[in-house]
Each structure stands twice: as structure tokens, then as C-alpha cells.
């Protein structure tokens, strides 16, 4: 059975509940490091028809597909979702907007062109919005789509975020099942760059089958290769989402989320090597059994330090972290590499 077939099989066992089409999946506000400053951000996730790749199988760790709508929302529905989301930012004088779907914001099948141009125009009109970040798979990042976006979004900065996950084609194909290559990413990044659009890259720490050490080193290598094309790198820590292959394996004792010590190590080493690169990580679900974690004692504190660093980009924030479990993690780095097909669960 191929990886894609297996992922699809798991997907088909999940039930998706009907939801209103004019309500976004999620909206929240927060703070982000943006071009040297800490800024307010408004994050909105649109409910669309969903990621096309996810519908034919998709990534082994991705549970966002279940946020999609059961029928395709219309352009009006999407704009309506946008308006509702913007309401959450009423308290801000200045903020950045981050737009996600469960797939690609630039995929016309998810976000009809009418909705796209309307939303970008509304953002352009709102003076408080200084920057817009949209996420897309690279195949939708074309000269045409860039021009179309920039046509609506004049003075407001645009950044596109791409979920590359890793620079290793082997891992992206045989562990993550992402459906595109590093070359695809490079092409997209260059298109963006040539249009003056900034690129933010998402990496993914610890996809399935990969040892803790391999995962760590893969991200370090990936940062190195991606830094050429992207000024902002955000490292996602794999967590166990419902309805994924990862969950299927995790329930059988065959997957363990990454250690927080690993991301701490990654952040330190990459920031030292690339001081001008913005390298962030949001340890979602840190300390939970489905999330990235150290031991019970230190997970909270270490996650806080990671968040602080992500905002400040100041390595001092990662100093002084110590816990008894660190020596266990060091051993796991060695042994997990030599366990031949089973994670070291602790």
C-alpha cells in the first residue's frame, strides 16, 4: 500500500461535521516578530472547499483538511468570513493580517478570484493593516497570481508563506507525502522575489519514521538551504492531529512528537549561523501527550522560552534552560537513530 493510499484510507474514516459556510474556521489575535519589531497580528483561517492535495490523500501529519467545508463556499461566503474575522481586530491601531485556509489561499478552487480581489482590496483600504501574509502551496505561486495580488494590494506589504517542511526530497516524499519537490519551492520563491513579494517558509520538525536526531539535523540543513530563498522561517513542531497517519501510528506506540530540547537546539544553532534570518517556532500543544514535549517538569518553561525567542529573535531568551530530562534527550538523540523502526517513547 502506498503512503498516499494509506493516508486517504485514514481520511475516509473521519466524519466531517456540517458547518456554516460564512463563518471562518478560526480567528485569533497575537503578536509576531515582523521586520525587527513586535507587532500585533490577526490570524484568520478560512473555511474553504479544502486543500486539493489533502483531498486525494495528502500529508501524513495534516489534520487541517477536516476544517474544510462540506460544500464549496461561494465568493460571498468567503468575503463574509473575512469581514467577520476583521471584527476581532477592532482594538488594534496597527496590525498584520495572516490568512490561511486549510489549503492554499491562492488556489482559485478554494478562494474564487472575486473573493481574492475583494479581500485584498479591503485590506489595502484598511490603513491599520501594514502587511498581509497568505499561505499557499508553491504551484499557485505564479507570475500571474503575484501580479493579480499586487494589483489589489498596492502599498500594503505582501508576504507568501509556503509549507516546504524540509529541504529533503526523500523525506518530503516518503515520510510527509507532500506532493512537490524542493525545485518546485525554489521556483515559487523566485517568482515571489522577482515580484518583490517576501517569502516565509514553514518547516516541520519530526515527520513520521524519522529519528529525533535525523529530524533535528534535517531542519538545520533545511534552514541552511532555505535561507537563500526566504527571510523568515517558521518551524512547526509536529503534533498528533486527529485523522492523520501520525495519529494512527501514535496510537500504536509508533510515533513520538519532537522534544522541545530539539527545537531549542535548532533555534540556537541556526540563529547563530544566520543572525539576520527571522527564525520562529510556535510550540503548539507543548507538554501535552499529543504535542512536542520534554518532561512534565520543564515543558511549560521551555515552551515559553521558545515563544519569547520567536518574538524577540534574541538568543538570550534560550539561555539558562536546564532540566534533568536534558541528559535523557541527549541519549535519545543517539539511540533513536539505532532503534531500527521504533521510536524511543521516552
Amino acid at each position: 500500500m502506498s503512503l498516499n493510499t494509506k493516508v486517504l484510507e485514514i481520511r475516509q474514516r473521519q466524519r466531517i461535521k456540517p458547518t456554516p459556510l460564512d463563518m471562518p474556521s478560526a480567528v485569533w489575535t497575537g503578536k509576531d516578530h515582523v521586520d525587527g519589531n513586535v507587532e500585533n497580528t490577526l490570524t484568520m483561517i478560512f473555511r474553504t472547499s479544502g486543500c486539493w492535495w489533502g483531498k486525494v490523500g495528502g500529508c501524513t501529519m495534516c489534520g487541517y483538511v477536516y476544517d474544510s467545508a462540506h460544500t464549496s463556499p461561494s465568493a460571498e461566503d468567503i468575503v463574509s468570513q473575512f469581514r467577520k474575522a476583521m471584527g476581532k481586530a477592532s482594538k488594534f491601531d496597527r496590525f498584520m493580517v495572516k490568512i490561511f485556509t486549510s489549503g492554499s489561499f491562492l488556489d482559485e478552487k478554494e478562494v474564487p478570484v472575486d473573493a481574492l480581489s475583494k479581500i485584498l482590496s479591503l485590506l489595502e483600504e484598511d490603513d491599520r493593516v501594514f502587511k498581509v501574509v497568505v499561505e499557499s502551496r508553491p504551484e499557485f505561486l505564479t507570475e500571474e497570481s503575484m501580479e493579480f495580488c499586487l494589483a489589489s494590494l498596492k502599498s500594503t506589504l505582501l508576504e507568501v508563506a509556503i509549507g516546504l517542511e524540509t529541504s529533503s526530497d526523500l523525506i518530503r516524499k516518503r515520510s510527509i507525502n507532500k506532493g512537490f519537490t524542493f525545485r518546485d519551492f525554489v521556483r515559487a520563491a523566485e517568482v515571489a522575489k522577482s515580484n518583490g513579494v517576501a517569502v516565509k517558509t514553514y518547516l516541520m520538525l519530526k515527520p513520521p519514521f524519522i529519528s529525533e536526531k535525523q529530524a533535528l539535523e534535517d531542519i538545520i540543513a533545511s534552514v541552511r538551504e532555505v535561507s537563500v530563498y526566504s527571510g523568515v522561517i517558521s518551524i512547526n513542531l509536529c503534533n498528533v492531529q486527529k485523522g492523520t497517519l501520525i495519529e494512527y501510528l501514535w496510537e500504536r506506540g509508533e510515533y513520538r512528537p519532537p522534544w522541545l530540547w530539539s527545537i531549542v537546539d535548532i533555534l540556537k544553532r541556526t540563529k547563530q549561523e544566520f543572525p539576520h534570518l527571522i527564525i520562529t517556532s510556535d510550540p503548539v500543544g507543548a507538554g501535552a501527550k499529543r504535542g512536542p514535549r520534554n518532561c512534565k517538569e520543564c515543558s511549560g518553561e521551555v515552551a515559553d522560552a521558545i515563544r519569547a525567542f520567536s518574538l524577540s529573535q534574541d538568543l538570550h531568551d534560550l539561555e539558562g534552560l536546564e532540566c534533568d530530562c536534558r541528559s535523557l534527550w541527549e541519549k535519545v538523540l543517539v539511540l533513536d537513530d539505532l532503534s531500527f523502526g521504533s521510536p524511543i517513547l521516552e
Binding site: M1, S2, L3, K6, S175, P208, F209, L249, G341
Partner: peptide
């Protein structure tokens, strides 16, 4: 190495 319940890839 994969894990025992992984599809062969």
C-alpha cells in the same frame, strides 16, 4: 526504517 504499521514506502 519505517515503523511496523506504516505502509511500505
Amino acid at each position: 526504517c519505517l515503523v511496523p504499521d506504516a505502509p511500505d514506502c
